[in-house]
Amino acid sequence: MSEHKNHISTYKSQILVLLTLIMLTVLTVVITSVHLGPFNTAAAMLIASVKAAIVLLYFMHLKFDEKIYRFMVTLVLAIYAVVIIITFFDYLYR
């Protein structure tokens, strides 16, 4: 196996990520007061996905790792997204 280079993140980037996550959490709470019908769920899911993506990319170092892992994770998440979308087909058209 090729020698694996460890990426070391700076404090600055770590803190920036943390602040972004906190802001998004606040946004999740605030958005519940706006009435969007079923899209409330969609909005919450969207924000949660963005947060998960940030954690994966920065905290879990996906951004700095080999491409194949990014591909795998994207594919997996895409499958889950499609599964959720199909389920909602049922609820939206019932």
Binding site: I79, V83, I86, F89, D90, Y91, Y93, R94
Partner: peptide
């Protein structure tokens, strides 16, 4: 195989659209 599970639910009261998609 991930996208076809609804064929077990055709008579469960799922929406028409979902039934046709599945």
């Amino acid at each position: 195989g991930y996208l076809v599970w609804g064929h077990h639910m055709f008579t469960s009261g799922m929406s028409e659209t979902a039934r046709l998609v599945f």
